[in-house]
């Protein structure tokens, strides 16, 4: 069964990577603290803004916190698995050891996507859940079970959309080897996700909804969890992220076909 074998190999890769990270205990602690510091940092602009205003573009403080919660969770996934793995892949493309990945009898895309993890980012994941709890306590009502289910599905679609964007960036780096800076650019753009998309107007909003769909990653899931989501937005977001995955998968296939090793 290739499916089962792929899963086993992925699990082994992750275990090895976690063990490596755990060897540096002091570093582990420091990185954990740094991660929490960044979570706290996310609150500051929000506190400044809502220290003066009750409502901004239809969002009050607790609802905006839900967006921040999704932002923190997605960034934990991004910096915990996606960027470390892809950075590793890019350095392999550059020094030629990527050939060994391609030689393995498993799907290279899956192998590359989860070859390195930074386990302390799990703390940020917990912090994200904590933000949700805080936000709904402030709101004074728990989310309905239906909203939670939709919120989870939308979270997954957000992760898929994010992964697809980064996979496309990595695929491009096969042609121009020094394009890994593109990932930094994407990270900088992803920062928009801490805000509900409706606080932006005009071209900015269109770009971050359609071209680089940050809205699919944080705002739409937050609306779903708050019970404000409608079926059209949900299907649009899920369909959009599925299309993105398909597109980046095709780009990856073309990139692999064009790959001629570093030598």
């Amino acid at each position: 069964m290739t499916g089962e074998r792929t899963l086993r190999v992925l699990a082994a890769q992750l275990r090895a990577s976690v063990m490596t990270a755990m060897q540096y205990r002091a570093n582990f602690l420091v990185s954990g603290l740094v991660a929490l510091y960044w979570v706290a940092w996310n609150f500051l602009p929000l506190l400044i803004l809502f220290g003066d205003r009750q409502m901004v573009a239809g969002w009050d403080y607790p609802s905006a916190l839900v967006v921040v919660g999704y932002f923190v969770i997605l960034r934990a996934v991004l910096e915990g698995i996606i960027t470390p793995s892809f950075e590793d892949a890019i350095s392999r493309i550059r020094n030629g050891s990527f050939d060994y990945v391609l030689l393995k009898p498993l799907d290279a895309m899956l192998l590359v996507s989860a070859c390195k993890v930074e386990p302390w980012k799990a703390l940020e994941l917990l912090a994200g859940l904590g933000i949700f709890v805080h936000a709904f306590l402030e709101l004074g009502r728990p989310p309905t079970p239906g909203a939670v289910a939709l919120g989870v599905v939308m979270l997954l679609s957000g992760v898929v959309a994010m992964y697809s964007l980064w996979l496309a960036a990595v695929s491009l780096s096969f042609w121009a080897v020094r394009l890994d800076n593109l990932m930094y650019l994407l990270s900088a753009i992803f920062d928009v996700g801490r805000w509900p998309i409706s606080v932006f107007r005009g071209a900015v909003r269109v770009v971050f909804t359609v071209v680089i769909p940050v809205a699919i990653m944080t705002t739409f899931p937050a609306m779903a969890l708050l019970g404000r989501g409608d079926a059209r937005t949900a299907t649009g977001a899920i369909g959009g992220s599925a299309l993105m995955l398909l597109g980046s998968r095709l780009l990856w296939r073309r990139a692999i076909a064009a790959y001629t090793s570093a030598s």
């Binding site: 205003r53 805000w195 606080v199 932006f200």
Partner: peptide, 9 residues
């Protein structure tokens, strides 16, 4: 990004 945010605020 901050410019977009604060001008709409």
């Amino acid at each position: 990004v901050m410019l977009g945010l604060w001008t709409s605020v």
